[in-house]
Nucleic acid binder design. Sequence first.
DNA 1: CAAGTTTTATACCGATCGGTATTCAACTGG
DNA 2: CCAGTTGAATACCGATCGGTATAAAACTTG
Lengths: 193, 193
Amino acid sequence: MPGGRPRSFNPDTALDRALELFWQQGYEGTSLAELTAAMGINKPSLYAVYGNKEQLFAKALDRYFAGPGAFAAEALDEPTIRAVVERLVFGSIELTTGADTPHGCLTVKGVHACGPDAGPVRDDAVRRRKAGEAALRRRFENAPDLPRGTNAATLAQLVHTLTDGIAVQAAAGRGGGELRAVAELALRGLLDD
Amino acid sequence: MPGGRPRSFNPDTALDRALELFWQQGYEGTSLAELTAAMGINKPSLYAVYGNKEQLFAKALDRYFAGPGAFAAEALDEPTIRAVVERLVFGSIELTTGADTPHGCLTVKGVHACGPDAGPVRDDAVRRRKAGEAALRRRFENAPDLPRGTNAATLAQLVHTLTDGIAVQAAAGRGGGELRAVAELALRGLLDD
DNA sequence: CAAGTTTTATACCGATCGGTATTCAACTGG
DNA sequence: CCAGTTGAATACCGATCGGTATAAAACTTG
């Protein structure tokens, strides 16, 4: 079976351009025209390779978690609860305030794509958030260094809430320096007692 | 000078319908057709009374802060820092998880309206957030019960970050019961030492 | 009832939305 | 060189976007 015309772009690097744009402008705020322009391809190629706008966003989310967001999964391997939490919180600050990347968090922006046509995108973002939080809760459950009287699920939800707040603050323009001071204050009483 | 045809709707109650819709679907996710349908008016009336979509959103924000979000300004009058913070945090949970109102926070959603045409809306939301946080910082500065070693600006930013996180959690479907437990855990170490 | 004024309702505007049909270019195997 | 296959480029689709021109309806004043 013969080969046909070779593809003139790299699907992964083009996906990176789409990720940047979605990360910056959100799902609803990004049009197909902007996407194809940034990716350097035209619409039929986009649809042939990625499906449609919804599926392109889902693939961008995959790449987000495999690349810039990988620290969230890696954090679970830290030896202590304190180290897990610190890596998650300070990693979120780095992720959302990076000089070379858009400010804010792609999944938080995905949750806030709440127009009538964005239902599946929002649901997908919510599903991934739940999966990540469940993994964090399991990491805390039965951990030998979980303080007595602290509920693993509640602690996981608090860490998730903190990283969400950091993402909003970053999206609203707050820099990493201030956010690190905020995080230190938040974790001081939480992990020091 | 004569009177002309009387207006057939109440601008304030119609604005409340617009507020509900923006609160639920965000700025970019809500179309003029949906707005006019929910408000029970047609487009020329909307433009005559409110200006345009951007200005309608700004007026909805005004009404948001005057109504459901009024607790944020009132909280500053609480006698102690602890009471101020608790009213802000638990008030945010009520606001964003109410049974009769959309889940999430209108200003957080406004910050995440980041498409090319939503620049002014986003900037307006950011400006209002900064003003609110500045008022909170001033409330903390020189407060007699501010713990030594705690920076007023950082504490204000942390409270703001917590309420932002709560808004994201609520928008993603978390209920008020769990969020109250999260808030208690967050404030335990922060205000008890 | 007539003149003047303001709001309402409908129809319409160009532009853009996400998505696709069609045509042409570039390659492989015979 | 030719047949077959695959991707690229353009043009196009109906629908909807935010916004407006136009004209009819409902009121106040004389």
